[in-house]
Design a protein around this nucleic acid. Structure first.
Lengths: 107, 107
DNA sequence: TATATAAATAACAATATGGTTATATAACTA
DNA sequence: TAGTTATATAACCATATTGTTATTTATATA
């Protein structure tokens, strides 16, 4: 479902740590060990936030020898902002429901 | 904090039921009893979703005799989409951290 | 090969979320 | 005033979220 997918992406964004990570990645790619000291949480916590962002396709990971660098998927982020500002128009659905008498009208 | 507030608003949006409610309100104001039969959840559940949206200032409520009508705060919704596409630039903060030697560099 | 570093995963705990049913409140109506 | 309808709140439960510490996996190096 459309709404389910958008809600999932928004959930991935709806956390201050993850928003800050994304903001940092706007400047440049970062590896996990760079990110950890910036936040007051443990390395596994950062790792899981990154994993969450990766699942939502908001970031991309690349291993470079012993480090894993994360980069922002700008396109996905932009698509999400766009989707928020262009939520589906349900006026047709409302009209249908009215025609079928399935809609209570209050007046 | 900037990120905290944005995260809170995004949390309010990050639910398929609430996204659909917002989409419906794009067409016109709706009262609670109109919304309830559209979803497969109870009236109190809808009521709490609306309450969540109200707290986030994404909707506005107006009582008209026995009904309570909810309307969309288009401005707040647009601001949120905009904020997503214009997350703060933290490059200065990164530079500062580097200067203070607080940033691990991996290469 | 043994050790060190980077990152992910496992197991667990506390809190948040989202649903339910029951009940309270507010406003109409006979 | 008593009853009805619309909505909100309370109490509760199951699951999700987000942190922790301990451990595992992957890579580099002495």
């Amino acid at each position: 479902m459309e709404f389910e997918k958008l809600a999932d992406t928004l959930k991935a964004l709806a956390d201050p740590t993850r928003l800050k990570i994304i903001s940092l990645l706007r400047t440049r790619d970062c590896c996990v060990c760079e990110l950890v000291p910036i936040f007051n949480i443990s390395q596994p916590a950062i790792s899981r936030h990154l994993s969450r962002l990766k699942t939502a396709e908001l970031v991309h990971e690349t291993r470079k020898s012993q480090w894993v660098f994360y980069s922002l998927n700008v396109k996905k982020l932009e698509e999400t902002g766009f989707a928020l500002n262009h939520l589906p128009d349900l006026s047709e659905k409302l009209k249908e429901l009215e025609k079928q008498g399935l809609l209570v009208r209050c007046e």
